[in-house]
């Protein structure tokens, strides 16, 4: 697992038009210089927003990747929720700090209902 390099690629994609062009023309080839697992390459090339969130990608990086793919805001949020439901809690990174069991459990931990969000 190489969360650092997944995020490094997205960081560079988000800010460099040349990386964006390379990704547009050949997604897999554009990842060749990064130390990534097969799972990570698939998540980045599909793209699988839910899997990327599950892997631990910071939302401040991921939201721009979603926008790059023209994924609408609410759809972006739902894909992350679906990713947690499908793959389980976030594996690594800042969101794995105290564990995460989904929006409902989280709301309950704060004494809130889902409707308050």
């Amino acid at each position: 697992m190489s969360l650092y390099y997944v995020q490094k690629f997205l960081f560079e994609l988000n800010r460099d038009p040349r990386v964006q062009e390379a990704y547009r023309s050949d997604r897999t080839a554009s990842l060749a210089d990064y130390e990534l697992t097969t799972e990570e390459v698939e998540a980045l090339t599909q793209p699988d927003i839910g899997l990327l969130y599950h892997l631990g990608v910071n939302g401040q990086i991921l939201m721009h990747f979603a926008a790059f793919h023209q994924i609408e805001w609410q759809d972006y949020l739902q894909r992350m929720r679906d990713g947690i439901a499908t793959y389980g809690p976030v594996r690594e990174g800042v969101y794995a700090t105290t564990g995460y069991e989904g929006t409902e459990a989280h709301a309950a931990s704060l004494g809130q209902s889902e409707g308050e969000r």
Partner: peptide, 11 residues
Amino acid sequence: WPATPDSGKIN
């Protein structure tokens, strides 16, 4: 909780 599944939650 910006840009996460909990986006919109405010304590």
